[in-house]
């Protein structure tokens, strides 16, 4: 996976809001804090972020409101122009793209889902979904065909001619998802897609989303303020605070080894046994004995086995291949919340 070139690669990017962000940033001492900048009338939307998103990976950016997560994702698609640093998307430096090329990039490679859906109120479901295709000039027939395909994919058959206001929130977001998928994007941005939905629907949509991802295997940048959601979906999580990334790692690592006090506070109330998987605990230099467990098993799922078993090290395998072994004692610590 990581052997290929990252799909999005950003280095030291800054996004500063204010009267003269470039000038301010150029003169600013390197260790200015967020608050000090605010006093000068500048807001650091994104503060010195370096990050890679790999192909086929789902990166969840997590943070409270105002932490800069939405700003960051908008820098990836150049809805915001960054103040300094470089962003490469699919190998192109997007800040140097001409308007025409940028439009072309968005038309062919990017899809985005919005928190409050961003649907066009005057267009029917079908027309909303076909909108990106229409913009790139596809003929009516093909775009209708493709739109119907995606409608089926998100389970909105029979509602093609409805208008957004005639749909429930969950259905509207399905339209948003379908629209973002219509052009078959390589990169899929989701900006808090389920935050505006009520909790039951949210769960259902998350399952639906996981199902889609199994099917499509896109490179995904997913924004949320809900830590549980992040843990549920992510391959990797980036936790942001005041524009900067506090920690970027797999859910197991974040839960087990929070890098900062801020991150630790988030993980405090999490039932780690549900999050930590065998793979996360596996130590590569151990082999263990007996039947292996699968790397994707959570500690909770293995609970009975961990309690009943007597081995010190239990082998762990991924896709049938051994990758190491986990320490039963350590796993029990996780299970009992002693860590």
């Amino acid at each position: 996976m990581s052997s290929e070139r990252p799909v999005i690669s950003c280095k030291n990017i800054w996004k500063v809001f204010g009267d003269d962000p470039e000038g301010y940033l150029a003169k600013m001492p390197p260790d200015m804090s967020f608050d000090e900048m605010s006093e000068d009338g500048y807001i650091a939307g994104v503060k010195d972020v370096s990050l890679d998103v790999n192909k086929g990976e789902m990166l969840v950016i997590m943070g409270l409101s105002g932490s800069g997560k939405s700003t960051l994702v908008r820098c990836f698609s150049r809805l915001h122009d960054i103040t300094s640093g470089t962003i490469e998307v699919a190998g192109q430096d997007i800040m140097s793209l001409a308007e025409k090329d940028l439009i072309e990039l968005r038309r062919s490679k990017m899809g985005m889902v919005f928190q409050s859906f961003g649907l066009l109120p005057h267009r029917s479901v079908l027309e909303n979904i076909a909108f990106p295709l229409e913009m790139r000039g596809q003929d009516k027939h093909t775009r209708r065909e493709r739109a119907l395909e995606v409608i089926k994919l998100v389970g909105l058959e029979g509602r093609e001619d409805f208008f957004p206001r005639e749909l429930s929130g969950g259905q509207q977001q399905r339209v948003g998802i379908a629209r973002s998928l219509a052009i078959e994007p390589d990169i899929w941005f989701l900006d808090e897609p389920f935050s505006a939905l009520d909790p039951l629907i949210r769960k259902e949509m998350q399952d639906e989303f996981l199902r889609l991802q199994q099917l499509l295997k896109k490179t995904i940048v997913f924004i949320t303020h809900d830590f549980d959601e992040a843990l549920r979906l992510a391959d990797r999580i980036a936790i942001m605070k005041e524009g900067a990334i506090e920690q970027c790692d797999t859910p197991d690592k974040i839960v087990l080894k929070p890098a900062t006090e801020y991150v630790r506070k988030f993980t405090e109330d999490v039932d780690k046994a549900r999050v930590v998987r065998a793979g996360g605990l596996a130590e590569a230099d151990q082999t263990g004995t007996g039947d292996p467990v699968d790397a994707s098993q959570t500690v909770r799922k293995m609970a009975r086995m961990l309690v009943d078993d007597t081995r010190d090290f239990i082998p762990v395998s991924r896709a049938g291949k051994p990758i190491g072994a986990l320490s039963r004692a350590e796993a029990l610590d996780v299970l009992l919340g002693d860590q």
């Binding site: 439009i103 038309r107 990017m110 066009l120 909108f131 990106p132 790139r136 629209r179």
Partner: peptide
């Protein structure tokens, strides 16, 4: 016009004119 609708238009790859014709004016209807 809501910001997200505008961004949705941009992400759909609208040119400036397409933005005006298909996104802004209908949304401000």
């Amino acid at each position: 016009v809501p910001l997200e609708v505008i961004e949705a238009g941009k992400m759909a790859g609208c040119t400036r004119f397409q933005m005006l014709r298909h996104v802004y004016i209908p949304s401000a209807r």
